[in-house]
Lab assay of single mutants.
Amino acid sequence: SIVTKIISIVQERQNMDDGAPVKTRDIADAAGLSIYQVRLYLEQLHDVGVLEKVNAGKGVPGLWRLL
């Protein structure tokens, strides 16, 4: 499923980069989806406690990390 793919992308990127959070844009590119589509999935995963959003604010790139 797309959700499983997104989780594995975040996991893979974090492992490659010493646990650093992953940008929404990088996840979207790797999943082959638009940034808006991916954001909806990321928000859902956040709501159920799978991911945390590391930063927030208007015009700030979203950074995500697995919990």
Results as ranks from 00 to 15, higher is better:
1 S>A: 12
2 I>T: 06
2 I>W: 11
2 I>F: 06
3 V>C: 14
4 T>R: 14
4 T>V: 11
4 T>Q: 13
4 T>E: 12
5 K>V: 07
5 K>P: 00
6 I>K: 00
6 I>C: 03
7 I>T: 02
7 I>H: 02
8 S>R: 14
9 I>Y: 12
9 I>F: 14
9 I>T: 03
9 I>S: 04
10 V>I: 15
10 V>Y: 01
12 E>S: 11
13 R>I: 12
13 R>E: 03
13 R>L: 15
13 R>S: 03
13 R>K: 13
14 Q>K: 03
14 Q>E: 05
14 Q>F: 05
14 Q>R: 02
14 Q>A: 08
15 N>H: 10
15 N>L: 14
16 M>S: 09
16 M>H: 10
17 D>L: 15
17 D>V: 11
18 D>E: 09
18 D>W: 10
18 D>F: 12
19 G>T: 04
19 G>W: 05
20 A>F: 06
21 P>I: 04
21 P>M: 05
22 V>R: 01
22 V>M: 07
23 K>Y: 05
23 K>Q: 08
23 K>C: 10
23 K>F: 04
24 T>Q: 04
26 D>W: 06
26 D>H: 06
27 I>R: 01
27 I>G: 01
27 I>P: 00
27 I>W: 02
27 I>M: 01
27 I>T: 01
28 A>Y: 02
28 A>G: 03
28 A>H: 15
28 A>C: 03
28 A>F: 02
29 D>I: 12
30 A>I: 05
30 A>W: 05
31 A>R: 01
32 G>W: 04
33 L>A: 02
33 L>F: 04
33 L>C: 04
34 S>R: 06
35 I>E: 07
35 I>Y: 09
36 Y>I: 11
36 Y>S: 13
36 Y>P: 12
36 Y>C: 12
36 Y>R: 13
37 Q>A: 10
37 Q>L: 15
37 Q>Y: 08
37 Q>I: 15
37 Q>N: 06
37 Q>F: 12
38 V>P: 00
38 V>S: 03
38 V>E: 00
39 R>W: 11
39 R>T: 14
40 L>F: 13
40 L>H: 10
41 Y>N: 00
41 Y>K: 02
41 Y>G: 03
42 L>I: 01
42 L>T: 15
42 L>E: 00
42 L>F: 01
42 L>V: 02
43 E>G: 04
43 E>Y: 07
43 E>N: 10
44 Q>N: 07
44 Q>L: 14
44 Q>E: 10
45 L>P: 00
45 L>T: 01
46 H>M: 10
46 H>N: 07
47 D>G: 10
47 D>A: 15
48 V>W: 15
49 G>T: 01
50 V>M: 07
50 V>Q: 04
51 L>N: 03
51 L>H: 00
51 L>D: 00
51 L>Q: 00
51 L>G: 01
52 E>I: 07
53 K>M: 07
53 K>V: 04
53 K>N: 14
55 N>T: 09
55 N>W: 12
55 N>V: 08
56 A>F: 08
56 A>L: 09
56 A>N: 11
58 K>R: 08
58 K>C: 14
58 K>Y: 06
59 G>L: 05
59 G>K: 06
60 V>N: 13
60 V>D: 14
61 P>D: 15
61 P>C: 15
61 P>L: 11
63 L>V: 04
64 W>S: 01
64 W>R: 01
64 W>G: 02
64 W>K: 03
65 R>Y: 13
65 R>F: 12
65 R>M: 08
65 R>Q: 07
65 R>S: 08
66 L>F: 10
67 L>F: 09
67 L>I: 14
67 L>S: 13
